[in-house]
Design a protein around this nucleic acid. Structure first.
Length: 705
RNA sequence: GGUGAGGUAGCUCAGCUGGUUAGAGCGUGGCACUCAUAAUGCCGAGGUCGAGGGUUCGAGUCCCUCUCUCACCA
């Protein structure tokens, strides 16, 4: 009997500023397969993850969208959960780093570090945007490379010549946020003294916690010597404020891995599990992190050091995988190869992607290529042609010539397995269970799949040799036909049990086909005999290569404006159209055509329409068409809007009225000030303009959708 | 630039601590079969294992040099 292990597993936290794409899926699918495998083996295994919600990019994206950061991350969280669920990623908990649990844990861990003397204050100089009044991360400063002069380079390194430098070295630097020239400014930051953990980290890494290739990679950093780690950021920042340090926030990479604990804490809160059992320093549970190689540094240096410094256990292992490429190329939006989970799921069964990736996933750091033509041939050949075919070709005989009952093998004696016509063949399948399990365990799923498919070939060969379709023509040989197909179906059953971690739905359907209720890994060791099967229903259908090719967005960049694209273009065009002109330009173009091409719901959702209350309305001196409106948009605060409705409305009649505004319109500088939105009105313009209003009950800030 | 990974049949890859004629799947040519979702089975073609040098009785497998590809650089 295998010793029952207690295992906690995580996948890297997806960043909450965009949708789940196929690169994320590579990681969660790999992890999910490993977790399902552990569960099938009878271990106690938990799988948690969360959204990574903090940091400057989220803060700025929310601002750009005209919504609060909280609104943004809540929306993204719902989308992420839905995508993962449809991909059959079986999280025991999926949380958010913006949770109260995480805040408490961050503070507790930070105070532990500080009280143990692992935190140090230092003054640093950093690029500062005076207009936006914020410090700028390196990636938010752009300019010419000081070494080679290439334009439009980020503040940390040059993509052209590879030079590394600091933002202050850039020539003609500008802030990406405001477009102004940044200045250097001093600020006090908090550093985690990583350097004092160097020896322990070396030992931890040598203990086998990481793959050999990763250990070699880390050596590079050790030979350079570890640098202490800046864990603080200045206000404004979306994150958690550091205790006893007003205006200072935890750097997103400090609170993100702690999010693993926080997500598990949520699971503990609704079960009898105890966080302490898994994280105390002498815990005998296992902790496994699955990550991509881009975030190696954080997980193999900072994170174990933080855990150790805070008096907790370190990870059992960190499993690092390579990147996903599409047709041999890096994923890219402009090439249309940034395939979102949604795009995939709208077209194909989730299990096909799970299988394809599983068949190519090794235990190393190599990048993995999703080749679309290979995708369909592989699925059609392996799953439909070989695997499912075994059941498909046997089931008919059992149903037709044996009234749906498998052979019981009663004519021979002995154990169940030996009552099959070819006991040795079954024994071979049963014995393979251990080496397949070893491959799964070491995350070499490609090897597991190879072995399973070799067995599938053996099963088809067996059926071919025994030719039940020939025997079935002689009534006296029907028992033999039944026995052969019973053997075939049992071989299929063993294979499906081995594939359960990869193909959970197909496996469940197969289990129901055998009229069974549960499969563990050991179920494959013993065949089932003499039972009735359910009528066979196709378990998988073939993929059309042409449809697969369309996974890539062949038209990723919107074409120039034309009648057919008019509506799609509106959000973009509107974003550049000042409010005052909205009544002439945009409404004219819209009314001109009797509707046009469809837009997707996502495209529509990009327009943030809100209910707003007019709190002040004035004439604009010198402008004969404009009114200056001050509106309250609930959680988004107050906005100043210059609206071209003077001919149609008396300002006094507007005060206190509810109207509809576009809240995420890019602010537009006009002669009379900056307009921070757009009011919605119908009509050709001039005196014939009619503002839109919600029915009573609506309140400022409500989103219109 | 530094570091890491990798270059094995048309494509995707396996080849563990060096050992008989280098493997699989897909694709391809031929044959067989017709139970099965034009599925399956059998036979074949196709590789001087990136290049050169070295160690060894023997190297795709170890060492050195070169070359190309990819990735990472807090």
């Amino acid at each position: 009997m295998i010793k029952r292990r207690r295992i906690l597993v995580t996948s890297a936290l997806p960043y909450a500023n965009g949708p789940i794409h196929i690169g994320h899926l590579l990681e969660v699918i790999q992890t999910d397969i490993w977790v399902r495998f552990q569960k099938a083996r009878g271990h106690e295994c938990y799988y948690v993850c969360a959204d990574d919600t903090h940091g400057t990019p989220i803060m700025l994206k929310a601002q750009a969208d005209g919504i609060s950061a909280n609104t943004l991350i809540e929306r993204i969280n719902r989308e992420h959960k839905r995508d993962f669920a449809e991909m059959l990623i079986d999280f025991d908990n999926f949380g958010s780093t913006n949770s109260l649990d995480n805040k408490a844990l961050c503070e507790r861990i930070y105070l532990n570090l500080r009280n143990a003397g692992h935190i140090e204050k230092r003054t640093i100089r950093q690029a500062y945007d005076e207009q936006a009044q914020m410090f700028l991360p390196d990636r938010y400063v752009k300019g010419e490379c000081p070494t080679c002069g290439t334009a439009d380079q980020y503040g940390d390194s040059c993509e052209s010549c590879g030079a590394t430098y600091s933002p202050a070295d850039l020539k003609n630097a500008i802030s990406v946020v405001s477009g102004t020239t940044p200045v250097e400014k001093e600020s006090e930051h908090y550093f985690f003294k990583l350097s004092s953990f160097e020896e322990d980290l070396v030992m931890w890494i040598q203990s086998g916690a990481v793959q050999p290739g990763v250990a070699r990679k880390l050596n590079e950093w050790f030979t350079q010597g570890l640098k202490d780690w800046d864990i603080s950021r200045d206000i404004p920042y979306f994150g958690f404020e550091i205790p006893e340090a007003p205006g200072k926030y935890f750097y997103v990479w400090f609170d993100a891995p702690i999010g693993y604990l926080a997500s598990f804490a949520e699971l503990c809160a609704r079960t009898s599990l105890k966080l302490e059992d898994f994280f105390k320093v002498d815990s005998c549970t296992e902790l496994h992190h699955f990550i991509g190689k881009d975030i190696l540094y954080f997980h193999t240096l900072f994170w174990p050091a933080i855990l150790q410094a805070a008096g907790m256990r370190r990870p059992t292992s960190v499993h690092t995988h390579g990147f996903l490429t599409i047709n041999g190329q890096k994923m890219s939006k402009s090439r249309g190869t940034l395939i979102t989970a949604r795009r995939y799921l709208e077209r194909f069964p989730c299990e096909y992607l799970r299988y394809y990736l599983a068949a190519k996933l090794g235990s190393g750091l190599d990048d993995l290529d999703l080749n679309l033509s290979e995708f369909s041939t592989r699925l059609n050949s392996d799953i439909v042609g070989k695997l499912v075919n075994i059941a498909s070709r046997c089931a008919g005989f059992i149903t037709r010539s044996a009234s749906g009952t498998m052979s019981s093998g009663e004519q021979s004696s002995g154990s169940l397995a030996t009552r099959l016509p070819e006991p040795q063949l079954y024994a071979e399948f049963a014995a393979a269970g251990e080496s397949i399990a070893a491959a799964y365990e070491s995350r070499d799923t490609a090897s597991a799949i190879r072995e399973i498919m070799t067995l599938a070939d053996r099963a088809n060969q067996y059926i071919d040799q025994r030719k039940p379709w020939v025997l079935a023509k002689s009534p006296e040989k029907l028992l033999e036909v039944q026995a052969i197909c019973t053997q075939g179906l049992n071989l299929f059953r063993a294979l499906m049990i081995y594939l359960q971690p990869v193909l959970p739905v197909m496996a469940t359907k197969s289990m129901h086909f055998f009229r069974e209720t549960a499969w563990s890994w050991e179920s494959a060791a013993t065949p089932i005999l003499g039972t009735r099967i359910a009528p066979y229903e196709p378990l998988a259908t073939r993929l059309d290569p042409k449809a697969v090719a369309q996974l890539i967005d062949s038209d990723p960049i919107p074409p120039p404006l034309g009648p057919a694209n008019m509506v799609t273009a509106i959000p973009l065009a509107a974003a550049l159209t000042p409010v005052a002109r909205s009544t002439s330009n945009v409404s004219d173009t819209l009314s001109a055509g009797a509707a046009a091409a469809h837009i997707t719901i996502d495209e529509f959702m990009r327009v943030d329409l809100r209910v707003a209350r007019v709190i002040a309305a004035d004439l604009v001196e010198g402008a004969d068409k404009l009114l200056r409106l001050k509106v309250n948009v609930g959680e988004l605060g107050d906005r100043l809007i210059l609206a071209g409705i003077r001919a149609a409305y008396d300002p006094q009649t507007l005060i206190d009225r509810l109207i509809v505004v576009v809240a995420n319109l890019e602010p537009r500088k006009m002669r009379f000030g900056i307009s921070e939105g757009m009011t919605l009105a119908a009509g050709p313009g001039g005196k014939d303009l009619f503002l839109l209003s919600p029915d009573s009950g609506a309140s400022p800030g409500m989103r219109i959708k």
